[in-house]
Amino acid sequence: MRILLVEDDQMIGEAIRTSLRQLEYVVDWVRDGGLADSVLQTEHFDLVLLDLGLPGKDGIEVVRSLRLRKVSIPVIIITARDGLEDRIKGLDAGADDYVIKPFAIEELAARLRSALRRSSGQTEPAIQIGDVLINPATHEVKRHDVTVPLSAREYAMIEALLLRPGAILSRAQLEERMYGWGEEVESNTVEVYIHSVRRKLGTSFIQNVRGVGYFIPKPTSTTTSTPTT
Rank of each mutant, 00 (worst) to 15 (best):
L47D: 06
P227C: 04
L162V: 07
V192E: 10
D82W: 03
R113F: 15
T203C: 11
E7T: 05
T228D: 06
L68M: 12
R21Y: 08
L150I: 10
S119H: 05
I60L: 14
V148N: 10
T79G: 06
G182Q: 03
Q10V: 15
S38N: 15
I100L: 07
A93K: 07
D145I: 10
L49Y: 01
T147G: 13
P136M: 02
D37K: 14
E61S: 14
N188C: 09
R210T: 13
A80F: 00
H139P: 12
G34Q: 13
A80W: 02
V148E: 09
I127Y: 05
F45G: 05
D9W: 09
T223C: 07
R113K: 11
V26W: 01
A167P: 00
Q41G: 10
N208P: 11
P165V: 04
H44M: 14
S120K: 08
A137V: 08
T223S: 12
I88W: 13
R69M: 10
F205I: 03
G13H: 04
L116F: 00
R199G: 14
V63D: 00
I194E: 04
L5D: 07
A15H: 12
L68Y: 15
E184Q: 11
K218F: 07
L116E: 06
V63S: 06
S151A: 03
R117G: 00
G34H: 13
D92P: 09
P102Y: 04
V197N: 03
S114I: 10
G83L: 06
E85S: 13
V192S: 11
M1Y: 00
R143Q: 04
P74T: 02
E85P: 07
E140L: 15
R177V: 02
E85F: 14
T42G: 10
I78G: 02
T223Y: 09
D51L: 03
E184A: 11
Y98V: 06
T18Q: 12
K142P: 03
R111K: 01
E176H: 14
E61A: 06
F215H: 02
P227L: 02
E176A: 11
Y214F: 05
I105Y: 07
G33V: 06
L150Y: 01
I134H: 01
R171T: 13
P217C: 04
V30P: 07
L169W: 13
L150E: 02
E191P: 12
D28P: 01
V26P: 04
P125T: 00
I134K: 02
R143F: 05
A160C: 12
V209G: 13
T220N: 07
D97E: 05
K200P: 10
S187V: 14
K70S: 13
W29G: 00
E106W: 15
S65Y: 08
K70Y: 09
H144N: 12
E107K: 00
T79D: 02
T123S: 10
